[in-house]
Amino acid sequence: MEIDVNSAIITEDDWRNPIINYLQYPTLPSEKRVRIMALNYLMWNGDLVQKSKDEVLLKCIGKKEYMKVMGETHEGIYGAHQGGRKMCWLIRRYGYFWLTMIKDCIDYSKGCEACQRHDPIQQAHLVPMNLVVKP
């Protein structure tokens, strides 16, 4: 599966900006939170990549790119309408990362219209009503 996200344009409200600025110009003043986060990232051929715990480099992508990646993974040519956690696992396996990855994948899979139509309907078992008597 090949997803082209090389035409990424970093906008001002992108989550990657503070980290990229710190990695490119470490002598400029920056927040402590950014300096700590930057320990897990590096610049590779002009792209921000995350060093994962299992020694794999994951390309960090912005909102436009990750919406495209989630759409291709969930509904694309090989997409099997996976659930949120499985979709997140697949995207990491393809080599992509963003901060709110698990939450976004779960929200995307819950919002898929085809998944909602074909998902089995869960019904609560019928239970007789019991009166509650106030003492």
Rank of each mutant, 00 (worst) to 15 (best):
C60Y: 07
E31T: 07
P29S: 05
V69K: 00
S52Q: 12
M67R: 15
P26T: 13
T27V: 08
K68Q: 10
Q50G: 14
M67A: 15
G71R: 14
N45T: 06
L28M: 13
Y66A: 12
W44Q: 15
D54A: 00
T27K: 10
L58M: 05
K53W: 10
G46D: 06
L58D: 07
W44A: 15
C60G: 13
C60V: 02
R35I: 05
V49K: 03
P26K: 02
V56S: 13
S52A: 03
Y66I: 14
L48Q: 00
T27P: 06
G62K: 06
S30T: 12
E31G: 09
V69W: 05
M37E: 11
E55K: 11
K63I: 10
I61W: 09
G62S: 08
K64G: 10
Y41P: 00
E31C: 06
G62W: 15
V56D: 11
W44D: 14
S52F: 04
V49F: 01
L57G: 04
V56G: 13
S30Y: 03
Y41C: 05
K32H: 15
L57M: 08
N40R: 02
V69D: 07
V69S: 07
E55R: 11
V34M: 03
M70S: 14
S52M: 04
K64R: 10
K68P: 05
V49M: 04
E65A: 14
C60P: 04
V56F: 07
L58N: 05
